[in-house]
Design a protein around this nucleic acid. Sequence first.
DNA 1: CCGGATCCGCCTAGATACTG
DNA 2: CAGTATCTAGGCGGATCCGG
Lengths: 131, 131
Amino acid sequence: MNNKPIIHTKEACNAAVNAVRDTLYVVNGKWKLPMLVSLMTGPKRFKELQRELESITPKVLSKELRDLELNGFIKRTVYDTTPVTVIYERTDYADSLSNVINEMREWGMNHREHIKQMSRDEAEARKAVAV
Amino acid sequence: MNNKPIIHTKEACNAAVNAVRDTLYVVNGKWKLPMLVSLMTGPKRFKELQRELESITPKVLSKELRDLELNGFIKRTVYDTTPVTVIYERTDYADSLSNVINEMREWGMNHREHIKQMSRDEAEARKAVAV
DNA sequence: CCGGATCCGCCTAGATACTG
DNA sequence: CAGTATCTAGGCGGATCCGG
């Protein structure tokens, strides 16, 4: 019918775009990744996380922890001491992100080089014009 | 020195986190992916893109196009007609994203199922308590 | 100690109107 | 046609104070 030879129906593309956006959403923001990284060395208490992430405010930390919990990346456990002790720890499910994260890390590093090269090329072009 | 057996130095982790954030940043937002998808079927003019992406405003489209161009994902060409014709097209470099995008798409789809399962489990738990 | 509640400033997407 | 100019709104991150 048209010149698109492949399986790119509009609906499939939209579903794909949405799936990608979901992924973007769950790891996006300033703190989510550092938090998951910080929890890789073991379970932590609220205050410990706050100290490690230096400069995060309790409100934001609390919200981010809730987000991560809702997505199943961390588990929150309350111990009935006085005062209460709250422990946060990574779940196994958090590891399911590793492929995505690695791809992103790798691409991001290459991209940094690519951008540098682009601006070098551009500088050369400007020089050529200037002469 | 400490109990971390692996190669996770603080600096390496930070660099990794930054690389990941770069990747997140360049494809983030409501429009970047749909735009790249739309340009997969061939070069397009400004107005064509606006029509395909229905509901994007020219200001936002213009900004997003600039972003994509700065990252080297698209090429902008001005033809000296009256009135001027401007053509946007994907670069080969845009294809370098395919691995990342595919991983994200796949993970996003699985995650949707995972979330569903989590809420089902939770509903079960509530039912058990209610009885 | 672990947060919740409230207020506040910023950034940016969007709406609308306009220009070369 | 291919954008720019101006204004507004709302969401997010931060600061500060409060409570269990």
